[in-house]
Amino acid sequence: MTIRQFFFSRRGDSPFKRILIHAVLICMCIITVYPVLRIASVSIRPSNRLLSTDMAIIPEDATLNNYVSMLVERDFLQWLSNSLLLTISTSLIGVSIAASSAYAISRWYFPGRKLMIITLLATQMIPGAMLLLPLYIIATRAGLINTWHGTIFAYSVTAVPFSIWILKGYYDTIPRELEQAGLVDGLNRFQVFYRVILPLSAPALAIALLFNFTQIWNDFLLARIFLQSPSMITWPLGLARLQEQFQTQWGLFAAGAMMVSVPVMALFLFSARWLITGLTLGSVKG
C-alpha cells in the first residue's frame, strides 16, 4: 500500500481531512487503551508495587512471576473454570428464556402484556445493593445457598430483562410474511419460531449473549450469596481474597485481572461482526 493509495481512495475527502480523522482516532485509541496497559504494567512489576513514578509500561525489572504464581500456587484455574462453566451455561439458558419470552411479547396480545413490558424496565430501577438482604433471605429459605442449581437459577435470570428488551425490538421488525410463508409450508407456530425467526435474529441473539456473558462473568453480588464453599467460588470472589483490610497483593491482582479479561475479549472479537450489524436491522428498519 503506497502512501498515495492510503490518502486517495474511494471517497473524495481531502488528504488533510483523512489525516485529521486518523489523528483523532489514534488519540482516542490511546486514551482508551492506556489505562488498561497500566494494569498490565502492574502485573509484571515485582515486589507488589501498585504505583510507579515511571511512565513506561514495561518496567526494567519486569517479571512474569505474578502470572506463574497465580496459575501454579493459587486456585486461580479452579476459579476460572468455575466461572467459565457457570457463565457459558447460564448465559445460554438466559438467552433462550429471553428469546422465547420476547417472541411472545412481540407477537401476541395477552393480559398483562403491557404491565410486563414496563415491569421489565422497572426491574432496572431499584438500587442493586438494596437487593442483597432480600436475596439472602430468599436463597436461604429456598435452600439455594451453596448449591449449583441455586446459582444456575439466579444467573439464568439476571440479564433476562435487558435481553427481552433488545430481542423484542428486533423481532418487531421481522416481517409477518416470512412467518405466513412458514405456516403455509406446514410448520406449526412453534416451528416457525425456531426455524424462521431465530435464524434471522442471530445478530440480536449475539448481543444478548454478549451482554449476558459479561454481566454474569463479572458478577460479585450474587456470587457472594450463592457460592460459599471454596471449591465453588468464581474469579470475582477469588480475586477479592487478594485484598485484605489494608494490604492488597496488587501484582497478583493485576495478573488475575488481565487473565480474566481474555475470555470476554475473545468472545467480543469473535462476535464483533454480528454485534455491529446486529443492532441495525433490529430497531430501524421497521
Binding site: 442483597l132 439472602y136 433471605i137 436461604t140 429459605r141 445457598i145 450469596i225
Partner: peptide, 11 residues
C-alpha cells in the same frame, strides 16, 4: 455485611 444478612435470613 453478609454475617448480618445471613443472620436475618436465619442461616
Amino acid at each position: 455485611e453478609d454475617y448480618i444478612s445471613a443472620s436475618i435470613a436465619g442461616a
